[in-house]
Design a binder for these strands. Structure first.
Length: 468
DNA sequence: TGGGGTTAT
DNA sequence: ATAACCC
C-alpha cells in the first residue's frame, strides 16, 4: 500500500524550517516547524527521578525501599517504597511510621540531579533541537520534522507492515490509511528510540507520550506508569481529556484558577467546555479564559520553545527560624559560595542579583515571598572568573543592602527562607555578536567526527550503560 | 511541603 | 516586584 495523498503539501516543505538560506540572524530561536497543522510532539517523564539518580550513585540502594529527603519531607521515592504505600511529598514521620525500613538519602543539594537532568535534555537534542524542559525530569520534543523526513524516506516502501511501539491510548485501532495515524506511529518508534538511548547511555527509565500537541502528549505520557509509553490518536482526544476527574489536573490550570472556578460552581472538564465564554472571561480575563477554554478541549497551539541554557541560577535554604542580621549574613555567604561555583562552571556572567525571603506568619504559611533585585556593578561582573574573594565580599554587601530594604532590622523579624538568584545571564564578551571573537569562535568548530548522521543519535560507540 | 525553574502583568 | 504556572 502506498501513501494516501488526501492532504495538500503533506511534506510541509515550503521554505523548510531547517533549510532557509539567508534567514536573518536570531530568527532560528523563534522558528518552529514549517507546517503548524500536524505536529508530532513527544513528552518524556523520568520515573521518580531523584531516586533513580541516587540508585545510580549508590547501587546498594537498588533493591531497597528508598526515599529522597529534603528537610522533613520525603520528596520522592523509588517503586520499592511505593509498593509499601509511600507517596511523594509526605513528611518523614508519616513515611517512617508506614515503613520503618525505608532508607532515606538527603537530596537538598540538587547538583547531581541538575547535572543528570541536562544530560537527558542534551541526549534528546540529538533527535531534534526543539527540546523544552519542564522541571528537571520532563522534556517536550517537537519531532515533526524528523517524522516528515522518515516519511519521505519510506516513499514506495508501503507502510502496511509498520507497527506502533508501546501502548495506544484506549486501545484504539491504528488506521494506516490515515496520514496522522502514520505520523504518530512513526513518532511512537522515535519515542522508543529516545527511551532506549536514555537507558543505554544514562541508565534512566521513564515514560513517554506521543500526540499532536504539548498538552495531549503530557497527559498521555502518564497513562501507563512506570517505564512505558503511549501514543494518542486524534479520535481518542476527548476520552483522554474527559478522563481527568478535575480541572485542576489540566496542565496550565493551577491552584488559584481552580479555586476561583470552583467558586463559580465549575469543577469538571465538561463544566469548562460548556460554560459561557463571557462568564469565564469576566472571572479570569480574556487571555486566560480563552487559553483555558481551549485546553479543556485538548487544544494547545503553544510551540515547543527550546530551553537552551538556564535563564537564571538560584540557591535557597529554608529553616525554622532566622532572626538576626549575623545569621542572615552567614546564610547568604553559604548560598553565594555555591552560586559562584555554579556560575563559573556555566561560563556566563550574571548582570542582576536578587534576594528573596519568606517571613514567618501563622496564616498564609507556605506562600508569599518578597524580593528585591538590583544590577550587579560592572566592575564586579568583570572579576567574576578570578578574584572570587573580592567578588564574594562585594556581593554580600549588595545583598545585605537589599535585605535592609525589605526588613527594618530595628524591629524583630522571623525568616523561614532565604534565596539568592543570579539572572540576566550574558555570554562572555568574546562570545557576543559583533565582537571579533564571536566570528572566530563560531566558524571553525573543532569537528571530531566530520559528518553528522541524519537526525539519529550517534551512539557513543558501544558505550552502553552497564548496570551494577 | 522542598528546591528549584518559567512566563505574564 | 509580584503572581501565576510547572516539576
Amino acid at each position: 500500500m502506498e501513501f494516501p495523498e488526501e492532504e495538500e503539501d503533506w511534506l510541509g516543505f515550503g521554505p523548510g524550517p531547517g533549510g532557509g538560506a539567508g534567514r536573518p540572524a536570531g530568527y532560528d530561536k523563534a522558528v518552529q516547524v514549517g507546517n503548524t497543522a500536524h505536529r508530532v510532539i513527544v513528552h518524556t517523564d523520568l520515573d521518580c527521578f531523584y531516586a533513580q539518580v541516587e540508585m545510580i550513585r549508590n547501587p546498594e540502594l537498588r533493591d531497597k525501599p528508598l526515599g529522597v529527603q529534603q528537610k522533613y519531607v520525603v520528596v520522592t521515592c523509588n517503586y520499592e517504597a511505593r509498593k509499601l504505600g509511600i507517596k511523594k511529598l509526605t513528611s518523614v514521620r508519616e513515611a517512617k511510621e508506614k515503613c520503618p525500613e525505608l532508607v532515606l538519602v538527603n537530596g537538598e543539594d540538587l547538583t547531581p540531579y541538575r547535572e543528570m537532568s541536562y544530560k537527558v535534555t542534551e541526549l534528546l537534542e540529538e533527535f531534534s533541537p526543539l527540546v523544552e524542559r519542564l522541571g528537571f525530569d520532563e522534556n517536550f520534543v517537537d519531532i515533526t520534522d524528523l517524522v516528515e523526513k522518515k516519511l519521505a524516506q519510506m516513499q514506495g516502501d508501503g507502510c502496511s507492515k509498520m507497527s506502533v511501539s508501546g501502548h495506544v491510548y484506549n486501545n484504539q485501532i491504528v488506521n494506516l490509511h490515515d496520514m496522522m495515524h502514520i505520523r504518530l506511529v512513526i513518532g511512537s518508534q522515535i519515542a522508543a528510540e529516545m527511551r532506549e538511548a536514555m537507558y543505554n547511555r544514562l541508565g534512566l527509565t521513564g515514560c513517554a507520550g506521543v500526540a499532536s500537541n504539548k498538552l495531549l502528549s503530557k497527559l498521555v505520557s502518564g497513562t501507563f506508569k512506570p517505564n512505558q509509553q503511549t501514543v494518542l490518536l486524534p479520535e481518542s482526544c476527548q476520552d483522554l481529556i474527559g478522563s481527568l476527574d478535575h480541572i485542576g489536573k489540566v496542565p496550565g490550570i493551577g491552584y488559584k484558577t481552580t479555586k476561583r472556578l470552583e467558586l463559580l460552581g465549575l469543577s469538571s472538564v465538561h463544566d469548562i467546555q460548556t460554560v459561557s465564554p463571557v462568564i469565564l472571561e469576566n472571572e479570569l480575563g480574556v487571555s486566560i479564559a480563552q487559553r483555558i477554554k481551549k485546553l479543556s478541549h485538548g487544544e494547545d497551539d503553544s510551540p515547543v520553545v527550546p530551553s537552551g541554557p538556564p535563564q537564571s541560577l538560584s540557591d535557597e535554604d529554608s529553616f525554622k527560624k532566622c532572626s538576626s542580621e549575623v545569621e542572615v549574613k552567614k546564610k547568604i555567604e553559604e548560598l553565594l559560595t555555591n552560586l559562584l561555583d555554579r556560575i563559573s562552571k556555566d561560563g556566563r556572567k550574571p548582570h542582576t542579583i536578587r534576594l528573596s525571603i519568606r517571613q514567618f506568619s501563622s496564616t498564609n504559611k507556605w506562600f508569599s515571598r518578597e524580593s528585591r533585585q538590583c544590577p550587579i556593578p560592572s566592575h564586579v561582573i568583570q572579576k567574576f572568573g578570578t578574584e572570587n574573594c573580592d567578588v564574594m565580599a562585594q556581593l554580600v554587601a549588595i545583598l545585605m543592602k537589599l535585605f535592609r530594604k525589605m526588613i527594618k532590622v530595628e524591629v524583630p523579624f522571623h525568616l523561614t527562607l532565604l534565596s539568592v538568584c543570579f539572572s540576566n545571564l550574558k555570554a562572555l564578551p568574546s562570545f557576543t555578536k559583533g565582537s571579533i571573537g564571536f566570528y572566530l569562535t563560531q566558524s571553525s568548530p573543532p569537528s571530531s567526527s566530520g559528518k553528522k548522521m541524519e537526525g539519529v543519535p550517534q551512539d557513543q560507540e558501544n558505550c552502553s550503560f552497564v548496570p551494577g
